[in-house]
């Protein structure tokens, strides 16, 4: 596997970064908010074709889009509509954000439900596809930087379209998406913190000149880089265990990441009078998805250490075709 991006991939990333740069400012009236969903940017990414990367180019490029968009300050849906839905339903073009949920969590607050037109429900073996028009959805106040919504009444899935046997694939790409967005948000949050500790002085020196700060930032940076590579490998290989490893790695490391980045902002780190939480709270929200850490870890064990042998030994069909 070549970890360098091709020229085409670099061009894709550069074009997306240009757009993200134009939307890097937080609107003043949102300064003390917990959540900021940029509906205009969401539409723009759709219209510019970035959310079609999975269908038009491939899952690796789609994961790059999730990663780059994850660096932005606004909450967007790229995982659902840019990665999971097109890979599960290559022939069905769905407009707008797609929310994702485990069937057991249908009665709870669901990320992006209030902005989505479609919901994909992980029913274990199968997936149910539920168009959301006609459902009453209450928006839920949360600190987790995404718009959350809850069904006023638990929906009946019996009439929803079923995608037989698609459950494992949904969880797999959901995990790749989680890892990619967490990697992007972590990258941006670390850069934001590095900027802060260079400017902020204590004892006559920049905070970032102290080794206790430097060493921990370096560790967090190494974690974020590792997560990026694990994610890209999972998007490239199409192996379920790679997806679970990337998600598990992401979901395991965030406690130190969140704590150190907020800690290095000093007292400001426990307020919402800075921008850091727009990335870190999104990371925190994604930690619990697709079954969370426990399910990702079990998926790795099942896939890698079965009696039939390790998945690593087998070349997945998707890779063989590349």
């Amino acid at each position: 596997m070549d970890l360098q991006l091709t020229e085409e991939q670099q061009a894709l990333v550069a074009a997306l970064q240009d757009i993200m740069q134009d939307h890097a400012e937080l609107p003043q009236e949102r300064r003390l908010s917990y959540a900021w969903h940029d509906a205009g940017l969401q539409t723009l990414l759709g219209e510019s074709g970035f959310l079609d990367a999975a269908r038009e180019i491939g899952p690796l490029e789609a994961a790059l889009v999730v990663f780059e968009a994850g660096k932005g300050i606004a909450a967007l849906d790229t995982i659902g509509c840019g990665l999971v839905a097109p890979l599960l339903l290559p022939d069905l073009r769905i407009e707008g954000p797609v929310a994702l949920v485990d069937r057991r969590d249908l009665g709870k607050a669901i990320r992006n439900l209030s902005i989505s037109g479609t919901l994909l429900v992980d029913c274990g073996e199968d997936v149910a596809l539920l168009p959301l028009a006609g459902f009453a959805i209450d928006s839920v106040d949360s600190i987790f930087a995404f718009p959350y919504g809850r069904f006023a009444e638990r929906p009946d899935l019996s009439s929803a379209r079923r995608l037989p046997g698609a459950g494992a694939a949904m969880r797999q790409w959901w995990r790749v998406g989680i890892a990619a967005e967490m990697a992007g948000a972590a990258d941006a949050a670390i850069a934001f913190t590095i900027d802060y500790v260079k400017q902020r002085h204590v004892f006559g020196r920049p905070v970032g000149s102290f080794q206790s700060v430097q060493h921990r930032l370096v560790q967090r940076h190494g974690w974020a880089k590792s997560l990026y590579y694990l994610t890209m490998k999972a998007a490239w290989s199409g192996a379920e265990s790679d997806a679970a490893i990337a998600a598990c790695f992401a979901q395991t490391g965030i406690q130190s990441l969140m704590f150190d980045l907020h800690q290095f902002h000093g007292g400001m780190g426990v307020t919402i009078e800075h921008l850091l939480h727009f990335w870190t709270y999104r990371i925190r929200a994604l930690q619990a998805e697709a079954g969370g850490l426990s399910a990702s870890a079990l998926a790795i064990a099942e896939r890698r250490w079965t009696e039939a042998g390790s998945e690593v030994d087998a070349v997945p069909a998707r890779v063989a075709g590349l």
Binding site: S212, G266, G269, V270
Partner: peptide, 23 residues
């Protein structure tokens, strides 16, 4: 728990940060 969790972060800063205590 969410309140407790968020509030706990203030404790490694206020009253002398953990970095200062370690020094």
């Amino acid at each position: 728990w969410m309140q407790d969790y968020l509030y706990s972060w203030a404790w490694t800063i206020s009253g002398g940060s953990s970095e200062i205590q370690r020094n």
